[in-house]
Nucleic acid binder design. Structure first.
Length: 795
RNA sequence: GCCGAAGUGGCGGAAUUGGCAGACGCAAGGGACUUAAAAUCCCUCGAGAGCAAUCUCGUAUCGGUUCGAGUCCGAUCUUCGGCACCA
């Protein structure tokens, strides 16, 4: 018997698969049912893969291999989310070129992904930084622009003067820049944004009927944040000005005692009285110097300033002082609110601090002398709402407002505009030209892609993209008019919004992908990735998909039919694997030492794929022993052409259980079931060839190399095992004809009787009499018998 | 504060619908083989009591429903993840 030389076996099959294009997909073959298995593509960092990444990859690979054997035409692609800030920062630091650096990283990732035996169709590999790819990213951007979903607007951003750039919220800590610790302030700047709130309801509705984790659906729902309420119009006393507020508690309008505006509200300078002017302006300035993070710190006391102006409560004409307060967000609702201190905790705290009235309009046991009451109850002090509960009062108020034309019922969403530009080099250029006459033009489709120019200096300057310095690239002429290219680039989430569509038809240069192919292959049947992308990438990708669907380019509104998460990989010290702690395990080392099959099995055996896992080098040996055992048995005299039936039952049970586990991605239990089977084979005298072949197939999706090798060398099969029909099982042969039935007395386990399957209660009591006579002699009051499960006698 | 997930041996984890808790693997202990070691194979392995057959306790804590609860219900504690003044 030859030794189990995993290295030689891996080399042999890697070149076999490559040479025979074993995993190439003929996407035009519609004769078989399709299956599209997909992992979120990696960001090709300089650090390479760590052992956390392959959890999701092996899971989708095993699903792809399983479905191929089940007769599906499987699409299983891979690519790289290659644009992004870390690469650019590396380039600035080292003087390297981001493109070269990215290419190098991609080569390393590809090597590692091939090393672990993924059955990827490598001819479909894509990279978001490839102009052939981002041509179509730009093209979709233009379609969004033409449809009015892209805006170039002034908005408030985090601005760091020292770094000369805009920062994302998570790059700002305690009002200072994460890098350098420089002060960061709010600043109004022109920004590209995508109007994702227009899709809020569609994205919410689209969640229905998806096979996704319930918690993920809830996370997306909360993120979109639908709330039903009313917009109410307020007039300002002694002024022509009006403003609107959004409220979910229109029923409490009679309890409103002041109004509060966000410090950025446009009406403020028009209504502020002379005496309050300096105070108001000082406050606005103070707020502008704060970051979102400071402003939204709920632990700080609320602050605000009186404008001197009064609003008129449309319900009872009472005068309400108008404050500006930083607890009012300019980005939510109308950037203004009617305050009802008696029934809102935030308004209550503010009213107490500034000694404003608190009017109770809902009856409660505890009253409102100590804190706000936010529950349901009978309305009081509310004119035509008196006596009604919250829901009735709300409904009545909606009707009244609409009748009086003072407001209307509405739906508001928390989802905000998606800022779609960065002042950086390493991203897709925004395909827009600013013309001399002040107009903006899209780059004509025939001139796409707008390719990133080669540069030497990638440092952003004065909040402008480094592309400003590429003067030859920037200055263009269209139809005789001069213009300048937009120098902001797209965020790194752009390329990942539609990559799953491009995989289907990656070399198409006429359109982003052929419609017939898209209709056949979408949606993705299985999508696996981390939970951290639920409110970012996944939501954005769903929006782009939905947009393309609305415009008729796609026939499926939702891209990901079934979605599962891979859990975090922790180091054995209980900390997250990270360079910082020096506890990162490199798959290269594990594969070199134990082989790719052992690595794959260990990754899957650690626990359910969505669970947090704790890497433990010691545990790997169990999987190594498992494969060694298989190798030995397949080369032993046990293996024979034989019609021996002794393993028939457990074989059928194993096929049944493993098949079900693969369907559920429950790979940890699939592996333990296969271990139990091999333990039985080890005990048995013979291992009939039919079962031996079937077992190799069961194991193949998780351990492709050893199974291909044994299939080839032990059974002399010339073709790969990859497409051999999945083994079947006989339900009748799975069933035990005799079972051990637990016997309880008063609910406590007292023993077990042997009994035939599906025995009647009489037979069960008979068996009890024969096998456990002591128990049957008890004075039986009642018998609970669940066939094949339990016999419980009450005495 | 709000939302979500989870809590089972020394460890990772099983238990498909409420029906023998701890499958499978690791670690540990004992034995066989060996001059010896490694590898391999066999046995033991939740806690307590008992010479023993056996008995009692046991799935974060407390209570409930049920013939029967790791599983269902109510309260509490802890850990992790996400959001954070959303009117």
């Amino acid at each position: 018997m030859a030794n189990y030389d995993f290295k030689a076996i891996e080399n042999k099959w890697n070149s076999y698969w490559e040479k025979h294009k074993t995993f190439a997909t003929d996407v035009w073959d519609f004769s078989k049912p399709k299956y599209y298995s997909l992992s979120m593509f990696p960001y090709p960092s300089g650090a390479g893969l760590h052992v956390g990444h392959p959890v999701g990859y092996v899971a989708t690979d095993a699903a792809a291999r399983f479905k191929r054997m089940c007769g599906f035409n499987v699409l299983y692609p891979m690519g790289y989310d290659a644009f992004g800030l870390p690469t650019e920062q590396y380039a600035i630091k080292t003087g390297n070129n981001p493109l070269d650096f990215t290419q190098m990283n991609i080569d390393n990732f590809r090597r590692q992904l091939k090393m672990i035996g993924l059955s990827v169709d490598w001819d479909r590999e894509i990279s978001t930084c490839d102009p052939h790819y981002y041509k179509w990213t730009q093209w979709i951007f233009e379609k969004l622009y033409e449809a009015g979903y892209v805006k170039n607007q002034d908005m408030s951003v985090n601005w760091c003067e020292e770094l000369g750039t805009v920062l994302a919220n998570d790059e700002v800590i305690d009002g200072k820049s994460e890098r350098g610790g420089y002060p960061v302030v709010k600043k109004f700047m022109k920004q590209w944004v995508i109007d994702i709130p227009s899709f809020a309801q569609k994205l919410l509705d689209g969640l229905d009927g998806l096979d996704w984790p319930e918690s993920t659906i809830i996370t997306e729902q909360n993120w979109i944040g639908r709330s039903e309420g009313a917009i109410i119009k307020f007039e300002v006393k002694d002024s022509k000005e009006t403003f609107e507020v959004f409220t979910t508690r229109a029923d409490t309008l009679f309890g409103a005692t002041y109004c509060a505006l966000a410090p950025e509200h446009p009406i403020i300078n028009k209504i502020t009285t002379k005496t309050q002017k300096s105070e108001v302006e000082a406050y606005q300035k103070l707020c502008a110097s704060k970051t979102d993070i400071e402003r939204t710190d709920t632990s700080k006391e609320k602050t605000g300033v009186f404008t001197g102006a009064y609003a008129i409560n449309p319900a009872n004409k009472k005068l309400l002082p108008i404050y500006i307060a930083d607890y009012v967000l300019s980005t939510y609702g109308k950037g203004a609110l009617m305050a009802v201190p008696a029934h809102d905790e935030r308004d209550y705290a503010f009213a107490k601090k500034y000694k404003l009235d608190i009017i109770e309009v809902i009856k409660s046991k505890q009253g409102v002398s100590k804190q706000a009451y936010t529950g349901d109850g009978e309305h009081i002090n509310s004119d035509f709402l008196n006596g009604l509960n919250n829901e009735q009062a709300q409904k009545t108020m909606f009707e009244w407002l609409e009748k009086q034309k003072l407001g209307e019922k509405t739906v508001n969403y928390r989802l905000r505009d998606w800022i779609f530009a960065r002042q950086h080099y390493w991203g897709e250029p925004v395909p827009v030209i600013h013309m001399e006459d002040g107009s903006m033009k899209l780059v004509p489709e025939k001139d796409l892609p707008v390719v990133l120019p080669a540069m030497k200096d990638y440092q952003p300057k004065n909040g402008k993209s480094p592309l400003e310095n590429a003067t030859e690239w920037v200055n263009v002429e269209i139809d005789g008019m001069k213009g300048k290219r937009e120098t902001n680039t797209m965020p790194s989430s752009a390329g990942s919004c539609w990559y799953f569509l491009r995989y289907i038809d990656p070399h198409n240069d006429k359109c982003f992908a052929d419609k017939k192919l898209l209709d056949h292959w979408m949606p993705v049947d299985l999508y696996v990735g981390g939970t951290e992308h639920n409110t970012g990438h996944v939501l954005y990708a769903r929006m782009w998909n939905r947009f393309l669907y609305d415009k008729g380019y796609l026939s499926h509104p939702e891209p990901f039919k079934r979605f599962r998460h891979n859990g975090l990989m922790m180091a054995s010290d209980g900390r997250k694997m990270s360079k910082r702690w020096g506890n990162v395990v490199n798959p290269d080392d594990v594969v070199a030492q134990h082989g790719a099959d052992v690595f794959r099995l260990y990754e899957m055996f650690m626990g359910p794929i969505n669970a947090t896992r704790y890497w433990n080098d010691k545990d790997i040996v169990g999987l190594e022993r498992f494969l060694e055992k298989i190798w030995t048995i397949y080369h032993s005299e046990k293996l024979q052409k034989s019609d021996d039936k002794s393993l028939e039952k457990i074989y059928n049970q194993t096929v049944k259980k493993v098949t079900a586990d693969y369907e559920e991605l429950s790979y940890n239990t699939a592996i333990s079931t296969m271990m139990i089977f091999m333990n039985s084979v080890q005990e048995a005298k013979v291992f009939p060839e039919g079962f031996a072949r079937g077992f190799l197939q069961l194991l193949n999706p998780l351990a492709p190399y050893i199974t291909e090798e044994l299939w080839n060398t032990v059974f002399n099969e010339k073709e790969s095992i990859a497409y051999v029909s999945w083994p079947t099982f006989d339900e009748e042969k799975c069933a035990e004809n005799e079972i051990k039935l637990p016997v309880q007395v008063n609910g406590k386990l007292k023993g077990v009787v042997n009994i035939k399957l599906d025995a009647t209660q009489i037979e069960a009591l008979d068996a009890l009499k024969n096998q456990l006579p002591v128990l049957s002699e008890l004075e039986i009051k009642k018998v609970i018998y669940v066939p094949n499960k339990i016999l419980n006698i009450i005495v």
